[in-house]
């Protein structure tokens, strides 16, 4: 099996064990620029581990991951960190905003990590906050905003570097359906506008419905429904 032509991020035959638990057992994945792919499956099926491997957060025990023609497995931790800083964006379910920083500072953080000056970073951050309709919260701290607002701030932060891949792990898990859908709409709109690929881990069908196609993970094995059909 070779990655499908034109894919931005592809993985083959991933294996990863945490102690005796086999989290991934030969999973595969591929995504094209501008595509939104949902990773679905029951709890404990290995969805999040797949995302962590694809994002270079966790190295797989075996298998290959290629991003834009480069093999992730061969990279050092520092190189993978740099890749995450500049090319990837992340949205998690919760616990991701730094409670001491204001919202705009949180959004500006990834740019600052890349060495952008504070002023410039915060200006860019504010633009993204406007797009996600949370620019009114810029001087508030995460503790002072609602869950849905916080998640939008997190999406703005994930997009501020204009990443080529956005990883979202249950981004609406802590939100009610109205807020969840609004976040999904904004997220997918923003991603499409920058032609970013979105890897969306979710167990909710209605969230997955914002994707272009889905991959089902079960017992550490993946199934690409589009290619299977």
């Amino acid at each position: 099996m070779t990655p499908p032509p034109g894919s931005l991020l592809a993985a083959e035959d991933l294996r990863k064990a945490y102690g005796p638990t086999l989290a991934l057992d030969g999973a595969a994945f591929s995504i094209h620029p501008g595509e939104v792919v949902a990773v679905m499956g029951p709890s404990g099926s290995g969805k999040s581990t797949l995302l962590h491997c694809l994002a270079g957060i966790v190295p797989p025990d075996s298998g290959s991951i290629t991003y834009a023609g480069r093999e992730l497995a061969g990279m050092s931790d520092a190189e993978r960190s740099a890749l995450r800083r500049s090319e990837f964006g992340f949205v998690f379910q919760f616990g991701q905003l730094v409670p001491e920083l204001t919202c705009v500072e949180n959004v500006a953080l990834p740019l600052r990590l890349n060495g952008t000056s504070r002023k410039q970073a915060e200006r860019a951050a504010l633009t993204w906050m406007e797009r996600l309709e949370v620019d009114g919260l810029k001087d508030k701290r995460p503790g002072e905003v609602s869950g849905g607002q916080g998640q939008r701030v997190a999406v703005a932060r994930a997009l501020v570097t204009e990443p080529r891949v956005l990883f979202a792990d249950e981004p609406t898990g802590a939100l009610d359906s109205l807020n969840g859908e609004r976040v999904m709409e904004l997220l997918t709109d923003a991603a499409r506008s920058t032609n970013a690929a979105v890897v969306l881990v979710t167990h909710e069908a209605r969230v997955a419905a914002y994707s272009d196609r889905e991959i089902v993970v079960r017992d550490g094995k993946s199934r690409d429904m589009e290619r299977a059909v």
Partner: peptide
Amino acid sequence: LLSALVAFGT
């Protein structure tokens, strides 16, 4: 929080 910060490349 620390893990999340590391995830996005800190």
